[in-house]
Structure formats: structure tokens, C-alpha cells
Write a protein that binds this DNA or RNA. Structure first.
Lengths: 138, 138
DNA sequence: TCCTACATTGGACAATGTCTAAGTCAAGAA
DNA sequence: TTCTTGACTTAGACATTGTCCAATGTAGGA
């Protein structure tokens, strides 16, 4: 995580207490919080942090490529700090838990030339859905 | 489209003017309107139709599998009447135009057993992103 | 230590979606 | 055809998520 803070410093970011806290909340594996969840967790460490700052900071982290925005359900966007390893998402249809997964091969390759409508392709995002072990056995 | 109306009748739906109009708006290829776009178009044919009815009808069409809900941008959900042919979506990153596309092969097959975390997989939805011909040349 | 440009704050506002109570009507019954 | 009734529609309040702004605060260089 100090890696992230160092990268932010290198970009000329001012390291405020608020930004540190948001960065700390987003540390870990398989982390996919909504903005309000980030705000709730940040508030535990820094009670006076505002919603606007959380949104601002998340937006900035996304725009510099340190965090990925994920929307798996058409509800609130989620923020995924695992931005430096290409991956896709596996979502439980019942409880909503999200796992980062790595497909074998490039999903882009599955789209035939005749199905590209003249587009210049950049990326393919895949959402796998199913039941997680807990939900499947319940 | 009378096919759809017939299927709805077979399910015991009351065929109101409002439901007919929503069904008509959703007729066609590569149609992906937001709820408010459906409402705007429906209003042209039936000025007194309410927003709540459009939301209700869209929700019902989705729940019986006649329409698919698509969220490609984390903003408003879009409604896709092409529910009887499995397909994925190709989206222009600049103008947002959406095309229905059919990948070769099953995207599910790309997820190795070791990356499934014990989930029972149901489906994979793929969003391809790039620039459409108009945006690429502008 | 002092400046100042950048960051934060609270609250208003916007976009999208959900819910409810009251009125309306499609379609089967007579 | 007319009646009846339960399903449908409506307007608007409310909820959730996200954006914007003017006033205030502060990190970090001079």
C-alpha cells in the first residue's frame, strides 16, 4: 500500500489524511466496495471525512488507473484496487459476492471479424455469474 | 411483434394500451433504450402513459424473459428485446452506440476450473468496447 | 513560519428507480 | 350487451446514487 502512496506522491498528489484513509480502505484482495461502503469504512478511521471527498478521490484513482470501476448489477458502482493485473469478475447471483478471476486466453479473440461492425476493439469485460458455494448449499 | 403480444396474452396478461405501446417501442434490431427513452417514445403514441407504468412493464417483460436488461455504463439500465437469441454487446466508448454481437464459442469455457472458487456457473456476459467507425474517423 | 494553490466540506441539486393509495378498465360472466 | 371485479395505471412522494459549488482548511514549497 505504501507502493500506492508512493505512486500518488510521484504524481504530485497532496497526501492528505482523507486520501490516505481511502487508499487504506481499498487495500486487499477481492475488494469491491461501493462508494458509500468506502465512505462508511473511511469514516471509522477519520470521522469527519465527507462523502464528496470519497467520490472525488475514487474518481481520481480511477482516472489515473490505480483503481477500476466495476458495475456488476446496474446499482452502485464498485471500486476494485486490483488494477495492475488484468482480470474479470465472478459474481454470485444470490448474495452478490465478487471474485477476481483470470480467464485463459483473450476474450477479445472470440469476436469474429464479421461481428465487429467496423469497430476498433479495445477491450472485453466479462462477468461470470453463478452461485457461490455457500449459496449453492443453502 | 404480434408474436410478443400473443405470448403475453398466453401468459394471462391484460393487454392494455400502455403495454401495447411499450411493446411497440421495443420492436426492432439493436434496440437498447433506457427506461426514460422508452417512456419518451411511448409518450409520443400515448401521451398519458406514466413513468411508473413504463418501469412496471419493463420489469415484467424482463422477469418473464422477453426482454434483457443491459447495463453497459453504470448509468441507466437499457432494455434489449433481442432475448431469444443469445448474444453479447459491442459498445462505442465515445458515442455509446450498442450492437448485438455473437462471439464464436462459449465465453464460459474460458474460465479454468481453478478459477471458479467452487461456484456453479450459469452464464457469462461480455461487453466489448472500442470505437465505432464514425467515432474512429472523427 | 508564511503563502497559496489545491483539497475538503456540507448541502443543494440531478438522475434513476421504487412504492403507495386512489382511480380506471379489460375481459370474462350473465 | 352490460355488469363486475381484480388487475392495471396514475401522480407524486420517496429512496439511492452521484455531481456540483461556494466557503473554508491545509500540505508542502519558499
Amino acid at each position: 500500500m505504501s507502493d500506492l502512496l508512493q505512486r500518488l506522491r510521484d504524481r504530485g498528489w497532496r497526501l492528505t489524511a482523507q486520501r490516505r484513509v481511502v487508499a487504506e480502505v481499498l487495500d486487499g484482495e477481492h475488494v469491491h466496495y461501493t462508494a458509500d461502503e468506502v465512505h462508511a469504512r473511511a469514516t471509522e478511521k477519520l470521522p469527519e471525512i465527507s462523502r464528496a471527498t470519497v467520490y472525488n478521490t475514487l474518481g481520481e484513482l480511477v482516472s489515473i488507473g490505480e483503481v477500476i470501476e466495476v458495475s456488476t448489477d446496474g446499482r452502485a458502482k464498485r471500486y476494485d484496487p486490483n488494477a495492475h493485473h488484468s482480470h474479470q469478475h465472478l459474481v454470485c447471483s444470490r448474495c452478490g459476492v465478487i471474485r477476481d478471476v483470470r480467464p485463459s486466453g483473450d476474450p477479445l479473440a472470440l469476436l469474429p471479424e464479421g461481428e465487429r461492425y467496423g469497430f476498433t476493439l479495445d477491450e472485453a469485460t466479462v462477468t461470470y455469474r453463478g452461485l457461490c458455494p455457500s449459496c449453492a448449499s443453502a
